[in-house]
Design a protein around this nucleic acid. Structure first.
Length: 559
RNA sequence: UGGGGUGUCGCCAAGAGGCCUAAGGCAACGGGUUUUGAUCCCGUCAUUCGGAGGUUCGAAUCCUCCCACCCCAGCCA
């Protein structure tokens, strides 16, 4: 698609791109600079992926730079573990930031100088109201606030006090530095917001250098200005903070004038994208950790077998707008399947083994099968075929009245194709002492590997199988959605009650084809007719596969 | 309630006064192909744009009023 007026240039895709095009056209901006600014207080999730794709994508599309900058202004909640995990996730997603990884804490010195500047110019003051008092003075949504009794103290006094705060001579909570803006503003964010608070906590990067830390509002825009960020893209809930963001841009001698734009964050049904709540699941042991395959975190999705490309494609399919909707998880799943269908090597795994004895099989052999039905370049592999096989118990029924259309599997007296191998006929059921089905005796039709059967031999369908003697035992971890309710992000409190008790089912006795014995880590396979699976890293030598996602199933089948 | 934002098919979403008796994707539902009940292919799926008025030859697009939902009263981000 090209713009007929500007051949070769794609039309502006969303409102932010339109703004960027205008800025580039009018010369307000020479080079686009964006940033992805996570707080290292948790792991990245699918919602962040949208922001990452947007910010890095914008920079790439318009020949600009995108920075990775940690907004590490609250040492109480932040840690190096999170920094490391976030860096790894952004890299895994396939993005490269411009320059070094940056940190808000790199700018603490400059930020402090600017705080002093505001104090000296009568635009900020040290306030001694405690939390409760400050809330009281702030007023409500409908009533204006009242000025703090410390609002008009001499700037020299504020300066002395701020310096004392910085040296650690003031108790936590005893004083704050506040901007002097407008206690009667209809926008509560402008009612003398806190710029610095006393926190005698070691910071993961600056150690004990600081006893005061800047607030988000005082830090973010200035960080952008220092880095020359031109378009500071954030989510909708910061819209009310924009006037404050701009206030600093106007009142501080900043090296550049960044602008903030807000878009609607990604919400997914059956998914929770709140770092606070995800941390709760981790802390309470509801899941295995931040990278539990059921988590909507980048690391969880990775462990689950979802590719970075699928995440990127999904994110790029999302609209960048100001509506706050909820995307159906099915839309994400579509992109996961689409990517996997195109790229996953095929293999066979029998989840619920039923022994089949091929009574007319003289000796075992090696069949050659394609790794992908329509991508020959993905190669072939050898598949052992023997007189003893396993098929899935669900692929056999004793009900011989089932129609061919309704049950495309094995019944006594009829034929079925073994995927990549022979057509076989089920001849008899062998039972154990309890009367349960112990084994199936079948016979193969000679000459049907890679060829149709003779007249009268029309298989009902195609089923998967493995050799009983030349296959491997494996454990399967079958995941389902963590939350029953589509509105997982909804209310508070009842978080645990929404958890799907069957979000993990372990199948201990599956059998996988021989070639999967050395299945590579990080590769997602399609177990034919079942779903996509990837090898679990933490299981060591043991063969354990995590279910990424099942195949699309047009119903009507059973088990 | 004061301020800010949003309302187009079940979900996401194009749409910037006539080309809209409204794109596209997901989902759903029919049908075809198929050695995966997968993939793929074909088809169906909003006379209507939160509601009511108005302006106009003409409105989802402009005006007015109303309704609904989201965000803001952390020394979180």
């Amino acid at each position: 698609m090209t713009d007929p007026l500007n051949p070769g240039i794609a039309p502006a895709g969303n409102f932010i791109e339109q703004i960027i095009r205008d800025d580039l056209a009018t010369g307000r901006v020479q080079k686009v600079v964006t940033r992805f600014p996570p707080e290292p207080n948790g792991y990245l999730h699918i919602g962040h992926a949208k922001s990452i794709c947007l910010n890095f994508g914008l920079a790439a599309q318009y020949g600009g730079d995108c920075h990775l900058r940690f907004d590490d202004t609250n040492p109480e909640k932040e840690s190096q573990e999170y920094v490391d995990a976030i860096v790894a996730d952004v890299q895994w997603l396939g993005f490269a930031w411009s320059g070094e990884v940056r940190y808000a804490s790199d700018y603490f010195g400059q930020l402090y100088q600017w705080a002093l500047y505001l104090v000296d110019n009568g635009l900020a003051y040290v306030c001694e109201l405690n939390g409760e008092q400050m809330r009281d003075y702030r007023g409500t949504l409908t009533q204006p606030g009242r000025p703090s009794p410390f609002r008009d103290r001499p700037s020299s006094e504020s300066r002395t006090l701020l310096e004392a705060m910085r040296r650690g001579e003031v108790a936590e909570g005893a004083m704050t530095l506040r901007a002097k803006i407008d206690m009667a503003s209809a926008n509560i964010n402008l009612r003398d917001p806190v710029l610095y608070r006393v926190r005698k906590v070691a910071h993961h990067r600056t150690g004990s250098d600081w006893n005061i830390y800047p607030s988000y509002d005082f830090a973010h825009g200035q960080e952008d200005a220092i880095e020359g960020v031109t378009h500071s893209v954030c989510t909708l809930e910061f819209a009310a903070n924009r006037p404050l963001y701009n206030w600093f841009v106007e009142h501080l001698p900043l090296p550049s004038q960044p602008r903030q734009y807000e878009f609607g964050r990604l919400n997914l049904t059956h998914t929770m994208t709140s770092k606070r709540k995800l941390k709760q699941l981790v802390d309470e042991g509801v899941v295995d950790g931040w990278d539990d395959p059921r988590m909507p975190t980048i690391s969880g999705l990775r462990r689950r077998g979802v590719s970075a490309a699928a995440i990127r494609q999904f994110c790029n399919s999302l609209a960048v707008a100001k509506t706050d909707g909820v995307v159906d998880i099915a839309q994400f799943e579509h992109f996961i399947r689409d990517d996997l269908n195109n790229n996953a090597p095929r293999a066979m795994c029998v989840i619920n083994p039923l022994k089949v004895v091929v009574t007319n099989c003289q000796q075992g052999e090696l069949l050659t099968v394609a790794n992908h039905p329509n991508r020959p370049e993905l190669g072939e592999r050898q598949l052992p075929f023997d007189a003893e096989l396993y098929i899935d118990a669900g692929d056999f029924s004793e009900d011989t009245t089932l129609s061919r259309k309704k049950f495309k599997r094995l019944v006594i007296g009829d034929y079925v194709r073994l995927r990549g191998g022979y057509i076989i006929r089920a001849d008899e059921v062998v039972r154990d002492s309890d009367g349960a089905i112990a084994q199936l005796n079948c016979s193969l039709v000679e000459g049907t590997v890679g060829a149709d059967g003779p007249d009268g031999v029309r298989p009902r369908g195609v089923i998967h199988w493995v050799s009983a003697i030349r296959s491997q035992p494996a454990e399967l971890r079958l995941y389902d959605r963590l939350f029953n309710s589509p509105e997982a992000d909804g209310g508070d409190g009842e978080l645990l009650e929404q958890i799907n008790p069957d979000s993990l089912k372990v199948v201990a006795n599956a059998r996988v084809e021989q070639s999967l014995g050395d299945a590579a880590l990080g590769v997602t396979y399609q177990f034919e007719r079942e779903g996509y699976f990837t090898r679990e890293d933490s299981a060591g030598e043991q063969l354990v596969f995590n279910l990424t996602i099942g195949l699309r199933d047009s119903g009507r089948g059973q088990g």
